[in-house]
Design a protein around this nucleic acid. Structure first.
Length: 422
RNA sequence: GGAGAAAUGGCAGAGUGGUCGAUCGCGGUAGUCUUGAAAACUAUUGACUGUAAUAGGUCCGGGGGUUCGAAUCCCUCUUUCUCCGCCA
């Protein structure tokens, strides 16, 4: 959520940067106009309250002095004030509600480095690494390899739960556990504090990171207790810092966490959801950083390079995209997507998304920091996947298939305890 | 799940209807003293909103109510603690 006073004071720049995100900017004028009404009403209400406060104080003094009749006069005056107070309060509430309803519709501003564009085709490829493997003509997609080596049972998951909840078995289960440990060890070595958060969250947390109220349908909801299954560890980890005032010297705050993630993914279909490409439950290690506003773009680059390092070590060909304005998420100011090439499907699969939210989330979270004795100001939040497992597994299976089995990258062997799946 | 107690500023802890946004202490900040530091002493020290700047308004776990006036009374929710029960 953008800060109202910034919209008020920098209208032209706000409009310019929102246009890049293909946002209809008429809302900005509406917000500013309703806010003006709101502040006028607030001033009137405050004046009446001030008067009421003075009267109450005088009543107290008169009562103490035993002047009951005079006190009663003032009481009546105060009761009369209550009427106008009530009606002003009602219109104030109305203005506040209207302002809020508009504010939550406004996406974050795109950073100036973000390329213009509306569709994924207009994303900018900023980096590519690794050779695209040339597989033999009879190379198999990962779902066939999974069944050939008895690694993943999609039917069984269907029986236990439903589509999109696969069952991993034997060496595949072990490979996933190895990946989780590898990712966590690397993150910890890079300075991230490992967090094991709850995977059910309440409404306040969903609101803090922006899943609620708009994207309610994308989360699984436990009705009896009114809790949501997390779509990503970003939600519980970032919410650790809701309503917190940090000290400037606390930066950078670096957290990482492994969690299962749950996504309803309503409306998805076709070859995009085949095999491991898109699931309702999957595992992910997530990075969250809180940064000083002057440093957050350095942190973004640092996180991007960190994720690239993981992919290099996993020996996977990948590319980094700088998302164009139209393809970025609602809350992001700048996002890099990392995609690995899955050689049998001949597809680029997104395995990580690294974003700087600037103060957009922090404003909702009331996540602030204090510089010396100055007033608190909003911190910047960033996060990135490092990494999401299923698509990494898809690429590992497909790219490393040989007639003798599936080769495990060197860096994982101490974690898996085997070097080939056969 | 049952019974009882509690929730106040960074921490600790007063305050049971009228100058209480809140005593005192610790911590923090600034100053005095000192070559410097410590100690001591003095002052200062919450957030939100709002104004050109003052002023003003709101906040004592959350929400609602009573009252001219509530941290203080009432209702309700949440959380924590103690005891009992159950349990990995």
């Amino acid at each position: 959520m953008l800060q109202l006073n910034i919209i008020r004071d920098n209208k032209d720049e706000i409009i310019r940067r929102l246009t890049k995100k293909n946002f209809k900017v008429e809302i900005i004028d509406q917000v500013i106009s309703i806010d003006a009404d709101r502040r006028k009403t607030q001033a009137e209400l405050d004046a009446i309250k001030a008067e009421g406060n003075i009267i109450s104080k005088q009543v107290g003094e008169l009562m103490k002095a035993g002047k009951k009749a005079e006190a009663d006069d003032l009481k009546n005056k105060s009761i009369a004030l209550k009427e106008s107070e009530k009606s002003l309060q009602n219109s104030l509430n109305k203005f506040e509600e209207e302002t809020y309803q508009l504010l939550v519709l406004i996406p974050n501003l795109a950073n100036d480095q973000v390329p213009a564009g509306k569709t994924p085709e207009e994303n900018k490829i900023v980096f590519t690494h690794g050779e695209i493997p040339t597989l033999p003509a009879n190379a198999k997609p990962h779902w066939e390899l999974a069944s050939q080596y008895d690694l993943i049972d999609f039917e069984l998951g269907n029986k236990i739960t439903g589509a999109g909840f696969p069952v991993y078995k034997g060496k595949m289960a072990r490979l996933q556990r190895a990946l989780i440990n590898f990712f966590l060890d690397r993150a910890t070595a890079a300075g991230y504090l490992e967090i094991q958060p709850p995977i059910l969250i309440n409404k306040d947390s969903g609101f803090g990171t922006g899943q609620l109220p708009d994207k309610e349908g994308q989360m699984y909801h436990c009705g009896v207790d009114d809790l949501y299954l997390i779509p990503t560890a970003e939600v519980p980890i970032t919410n650790i810092y809701r309503d917190v005032i940090l000290k400037a010297e606390d930066f950078p705050v670096m957290n990482c966490g492994y969690t299962p993630c749950f996504r309803r993914e309503a409306g998805s279909y076709g070859s995009d959801v085949r095999g491991l490409n898109r699931l309702h439950q999957f595992d992910k290690v997530e990075l969250v950083q809180l940064a000083h506003p002057s440093k957050s773009y350095d942190v973004l680059e640092q996180m991007r390079e960190y994720v690239a390092g993981l992919l290099k070590d996993l020996e996977l060909p990948f590319r980094t995209l700088l998302l164009c304005g139209g393809d970025m998420s609602f809350a992001s100011a700048m996002t890099y997507d990392m995609e690995v090439f899955s050689a049998a499907q001949k597809k680029w699969l997104e395995v990580s998304s690294v974003s700087n939210f600037e103060s957009f989330q922090a404003n909702r979270l009331k996540l602030r920091f204090r510089e010396g004795t100055e007033k608190p100001q909003l911190a910047h939040t960033l996060n990135g996947s490092a990494l999401a497992l299923p698509r990494i597994c898809a690429a590992l299976l497909e790219n490393n298939q040989t007639p003798d089995g599936i080769r495990i990258p060197q860096v994982l062997r101490s974690y898996t305890g085997f070097d080939i799946i056969n």
